[in-house]
């Protein structure tokens, strides 16, 4: 998928496959009574749209010749940074319930800021600490929103 043409053909085929999947999943939905809009109608429409547009995109791109620009994919370092950022976000989400908002926020921000700017760990630590504290005071204590406080602040 280095060029736009290859990417569009691949994406079109993938979307068409998703369309087939949605169409087949729609057959499992239970039916409604007479004169009622069936719960299957919209999923069928979506499945058909995905199948037709996906196939259409692949075919249209395949049939067109001419300039084929390259897609600006990231270099190896860029891929690594994105993957680490996404994994740290996934960790943040996974730790939210067991550790609570303040502590998971502190851990996430400290790590993410340090990772994106390796030189100033103390700044990452300070921002993480302040934001974690503010998140507790503002969202949990003052506004009373139902965020998990975590074992440090419960009881």
């Amino acid at each position: 998928m280095k060029t736009q043409r290859a990417a569009d053909i691949t994406a079109g085929c993938l979307v068409a496959l998703i369309g087939i999947f949605v169409l087949s999943a729609s057959t499992w939905i239970s039916e409604a009574g007479v004169h009622r809009l069936s719960p299957r109608t919209f999923p069928y429409v979506v499945g058909c749209l995905l199948l037709l547009c996906g196939a259409g995109l692949a075919l249209k791109t395949w049939s067109l010749r001419g300039e084929d620009p390259a897609i600006a994919w990231p270099d190896r370092e860029g891929v690594r940074t994105i993957v680490v950022s996404l994994v740290s976000l996934a960790g943040y989400i996974a730790l939210m319930n067991p550790l609570g908002l303040p502590l998971s926020t502190f851990l996430y921000l400290t790590f993410a800021i340090w990772y994106l700017n390796r030189s100033r760990w103390w700044m990452a630590l300070t921002i993480g600490l302040i934001t974690g504290g503010i998140s507790y005071v503002l969202f949990i204590r003052l506004l009373g929103l139902s965020f998990p406080a975590g074992f440090l602040f419960e009881g």
């Binding site: 949605v22 939905i29 239970s30 409604a32 719960p39």
Partner: peptide, 8 residues
């Protein structure tokens, strides 16, 4: 929204 049937 109308029948409550589970979808996808």
């Amino acid at each position: 929204p109308l029948t409550g049937a589970a979808r996808l």
